[in-house]
Amino acid sequence: MAKISIDPITRLEGHGKIEIFLNDEGEVANTYLQIPELRGFEKFCEGRPVEELPRIVPRICGV
């Protein structure tokens, strides 16, 4: 199928790309949003002292 990629998505915080699949009539058959990033806060915060968390997790989103 023909595919239109919007990569990257813009004017928001974060990374993302959208793949739009078109059928033979040129209509949208399906659309997928993918997030091509992962930093792992859920894991690397483990083992840090609790008082450090308010200094670490704001860096999930600086906006």
Binding site: L38, R39, G40, E42, K43, F44, C45, E46, G47, R48, I56, R59
Partner: peptide, 23 residues
């Protein structure tokens, strides 16, 4: 490396397991 650099205390596999399965 910044804050995301803290992931160097763990591994890719541990991150994937935690984020997608264990959380």
């Amino acid at each position: 490396g910044g804050i995301p650099g803290l992931a160097n205390f763990t591994t890719r596999e541990e991150i994937l397991q935690r984020v997608y399965k264990e959380a």
